[in-house]
Amino acid sequence: MARKIPEINAGSMADIAFLLLIFWLVTTTMDTDTGIVRRLPPPPDPNTKPPDIKERNVFNVLVNKNDRLMVEGRVGDIRTLRAETKEFLSNPANKEDLPEKRLENIPGLGQFQVSKGIISLKNDRGTSYDMYIQVQNELTAAINELRDELSKQKFGVKFSDLSDKSAIDAIQKAIPVSISEAEPENIGGK
């Protein structure tokens, strides 16, 4: 006698599959890599002389092997670095010893005083990476804050919230990331 086998209830199959799905979603770490983006300069050409830059246009930041800072010839502090960098790059009072500006016509902003200032960052071989990143971070923060201020003034929103491509370009042109990393030297030893 052929007895009918009762059908297995497949109603909970969906729940099991959902559990699998959720397990997968939880376990895969979508580790989005974050970081500070920089552009390295091309290797120096031995035939061309480095361009002459006036002393007032250079902001010297040195980090030694004990992670101590020297900013513009004085002992510096990481906590004041951001404010100092901002003052250097914006030069609001048009001081004699802070960088010159050149008038540039930027589409979207009109005539704008672009600072000629360059931040020169020099580190020792013995500097810790953590300190180096902190300094880079403060310098980047200074530039970002200046960009935010300009963007708020001109477009009414923060730089990071700008969506218009031409507006972003204009701000980037008005306040460029002018961080130069000096050719490495071995001063303090390893």
Partner: peptide, 25 residues
């Protein structure tokens, strides 16, 4: 890590023309 190694790596990257870098933080 001390910057010495990182600087060496950066110099090497400059030489081969890999200019776009990212310090992972």
């Amino acid at each position: 890590v001390k910057m010495g190694v990182v600087t060496d790596v950066k110099q090497e990257l400059r030489n081969v023309g890999a200019f776009k870098i990212n310090y992972s933080t």
